[in-house]
Design a protein around this nucleic acid. Sequence first.
DNA 1: AAAAATTTGTGAATTATTTATCCAGTTTTT
DNA 2: AAAAACTGGATAAATAATTCACAAATTTTT
Lengths: 211, 211
Amino acid sequence: MAKNEKISSAVIRRLPRYRRYLGELIKKDVARISSKEFSEILGYTASQIRQDLNNFGGFGQQGYGYNVKELHGQISKILGIMQEYHLVIVGANHMAKALANYSYYKTAGFIIDGLFDINPEIIGTEIDGKKVLDYVELDNFLQNNKIDIGVICTNKQSAQGVAEKLEKGGIKGIWNIAPVDLVVDKSIQVENLHISDSLHALVYYMNHEEQ
Amino acid sequence: MAKNEKISSAVIRRLPRYRRYLGELIKKDVARISSKEFSEILGYTASQIRQDLNNFGGFGQQGYGYNVKELHGQISKILGIMQEYHLVIVGANHMAKALANYSYYKTAGFIIDGLFDINPEIIGTEIDGKKVLDYVELDNFLQNNKIDIGVICTNKQSAQGVAEKLEKGGIKGIWNIAPVDLVVDKSIQVENLHISDSLHALVYYMNHEEQ
DNA sequence: AAAAATTTGTGAATTATTTATCCAGTTTTT
DNA sequence: AAAAACTGGATAAATAATTCACAAATTTTT
């Protein structure tokens, strides 16, 4: 990373989108792209794209634009998705199945090492070829395996307890799908995927479509 | 709504969170709350909460604070979740199952009227007690039923085509779970739930935890 | 009943984000 | 090989979002 200032969250949330489009361009064998062309695809201003990227260094070249493959790689590096991450999923419900089976992860370095549930009828069943383990074994599992990310797919009542267990187990990040906000040490990153919040925002905009 | 200016998206995205916490307070029989107390729970500033709410009207009272139940109702009204919404889900995979079975919706006025898939092995199976229909019947279904929201759970290759079909069918909003950005008429609201973008943001923050 | 303590709503100040401008390299055209 | 066209990076300007500060209204305490 070129500069040491804190990058705003708005910028960070655009990076995955940039990367996604660059991936599509690679598939289409597009070798280079200018901020202007890219802005037309993405619907941002060219200036914003240049500003965003310049937070991390000058990846482009005057008169040429950006090399698509290189920029894709640079953004991957910035985000930190050039390496593997080991995950556990707690709560082996439909959402867990959706996440575990999501083909994307299999190609992208996210490895689900363990699935846990508390329900005896679910423990022992298989999800994506992996046996669901008893939640009581989670502590042990975290001690014996190097896990980076814990995914919380439980109901809201159980989520905070699971978060605390994951925290004790030495996890670095929590991906929280449960519809609550978790309280954990600030050294642990929590990313919420609040499904109903998203639906509520949709409904708001449907009712106020003049924008 | 008190004022007629466009409300910023940052405000709108905080409303569901406010509402969620107010719901919890109602359960705990808390009758009133000040912006200061609320700010301590939520981690926003009291001023921001007051500013946000004041975009829609003065729901509080000096010296008292906000009536929890009333504010919950007001936010529900602002978001537009006092009424029922009819949904179809396209792509009857695990994610569709996760969404369809998510107990929250059953209590909150979101009614799934139809599930569609293109795969003959999936057509006819049941999800949450509803038969999955053949995707070729979608046009007809949309003509004969008043559907508000289309949920796209397909892979990214199919998503745009589905969006166009939903658009023709007269849908008002699209909840897009596929990892692409859709192009539809601007009268149709699209809310993206980009799962991998969320995971990528998590990974970024795990690698830059000094924030 | 008066005084003290709360607490909102709002305008102003501050901070953050986005957009515009322009200079200096590159590439493309002639 | 020179001229023209293009384009990123950096800085400045404009816009937007957040926080501050305080009068006015209400509740609580004395």
